[in-house]
Structures are given as C-alpha cells and as structure tokens.
Nucleic acid binder design. Structure first.
Lengths: 129, 129
DNA sequence: CTGAGGCTTCCCCTATAGGGGAAGGTCAAG
DNA sequence: CTTGACCTTCCCCTATAGGGGAAGCCTCAG
C-alpha cells in the first residue's frame, strides 16, 4: 500500500507518515522499483496504536520507546504501565498548578473589578497587576 | 543604567531584555556615545509589571497589548480585566481537559494492572493501549 | 599598556509535531 | 503523447521565550 493510501486509511497525512519514519516510530518500508514506499498491511494497526497513545497524552518519544521494546521482541507491558503512571503524576501536577494559577488570576480579576476608573491613571504602573 | 545592571536589578538576563525590546515590550532606550543601552530608572517598574503579568500566565503578546494601551496614554484597566477573564476561561478549559484525560489514562493504567503477563505477547498490538 | 569584563550585532538552536512548497520522477487514463 | 495525480527528497516555517556563542568595540583597573 502506498503512502497516500495508508494516510487515508489511518486518517493522517503523508507528511506525518514520513515524519514518523524519520522519528523512528515507523520502520522504513519496502520500496517499489520506482522508489515509492510500499507499506505492509499491519502498519495500519501500528498507526492505530500510535494514535491511541497520543490521545492518552504520550509524546512521540514515549510512544517510540514502547514500540522499540515491542520491536525488540519483549512485551512492553511493564514499561507502558510505568509510563502511564508517570503520565498520571504529570497530569496531577499540571492540574494542581492550574488550580493555583486560577486562584491567583481570579483574585486579580476580582480586584480589578473594584478599582475606581478614576484612580486607574494612564501611564502609571497598573494598580492591579 | 546599563543593560547588565538592569538585568541584575530585575532578576532577568541581558538576552531577555534585548528580546523584550525586539518584541516591543520595552521601548528602545537611549544610547551612550559608545552605543550602549542606557535605561531610565522606571524601566525597573515596567519589568516588574511584565514579570507579574507573566506569573499570571499572560503571554508576552498579551502583556505587550496592555503596555501598548498604557503607552498610548489610555488606562488599560478594561482591557486587562477582559484579558484576565479570558485567561480564567482558558484555565478552566485546560483543567477540564486534564481531568478528562486523567480519567482516560487512569482507566488504561488500571486495566494494564489486570493484564496477565502471559497474554501480553511480544510483537503483537498492545492489549491495553 | 594591557587584560578582564561588559557591551554591540548577528546568526543559529532548543522542543513539539508536523505543514508548505519547490524541483523533479512515475504511473494510469484519455 | 500528454496531462493530472501521486510520489520522491530537500529545505524552510510555525509558536514560545529566550539561550549559546562568534566577532568586534568600549572601559576601567592595575
């Protein structure tokens, strides 16, 4: 299957597929005599895996790690579980940070609402930021 | 005051200061006969404003908007309040997205924990991602 | 006078995940 | 035979907020 067909079958683009190859997520496929990439059918499943991993918020680098383990003939279960755990911790950290930031911004916003326009002189340092 | 002194006084770097100038956050300062930047003392306050705005999660582009309004001789209060409100909405969106993602990843992780290692054969499509 | 810093401009580099487009080869249909 | 659609490689570009370093002046202390 040619690159355009694979792109259509997996809902991605030829650009992305070549990029995945360069990034080591897809092995270099066979070539037709004309030099066209000729993908095997199971590449569709591999791309499905990549896509699902991306929706879980894993980076291409992390997905590549998993695929490398699998391609080396090992079961990546343990590694995947560890990555997911790290990802969970990262998400929790991000949420906590955002909640804190939200409180800060909300306080600034509420304070801004109480500022008398008259006291908010132009060309001075802003009173509430 | 020279650029290195200003950087030290505001806890930033000369690189950042030149970058702010190019980005329109700082006006081009006077120059000494030798061509050195010669900042006025109130630039310290301006950088304090920039720094506080950054902690509130505003981008340099947004901070620049505020400063432009102020430099034009208008009070930026209204604009600032609007920006803060948009920022709040953005934060809320990010938090909601992260909570959803967290649930997805947690489900994957829990599922992974229940997978029998034996059924997780290498070189097959991963069973839980 | 000379060396150490500090200053100037200029250009490239970082990470992320590709997108845009040029120049040229290939293939199937009309 | 040619045209259009597809393929190839190659290089630059996106946004963010600067960082690294080179080559060349300036200035101050010893």
């Amino acid at each position: 299957m040619k690159i355009g067909e694979l792109a259509e079958a997996t809902g991605t683009t030829t650009k992305a597929l070549r990029f995945y190859e360069r990034a080591g997520l897809l092995k270099a496929p066979e070539r037709t005599p004309a030099g066209y990439r000729d993908y095997s059918a199971d590449t569709v499943a591999r791309l499905g895996f990549i896509r699902r991993s991306q929706s879980a918020g894993l980076t291409l680098a992390q997905i590549r790690e998993i695929l490398d383990i699998r391609d080396a003939g090992h079961a990546p279960c343990h590694h995947v579980q560890q990555l997911l755990q790290e990802r969970l911790a990262g998400i929790d950290r991000q949420i906590a940070d955002l909640i804190e930031l939200r409180a800060t911004v909300a306080a600034l916003h509420d304070h801004a609402a109480t500022v008398e326009p008259a006291t908010c002189a132009p060309a001075t340092v802003c009173r509430y930021l």
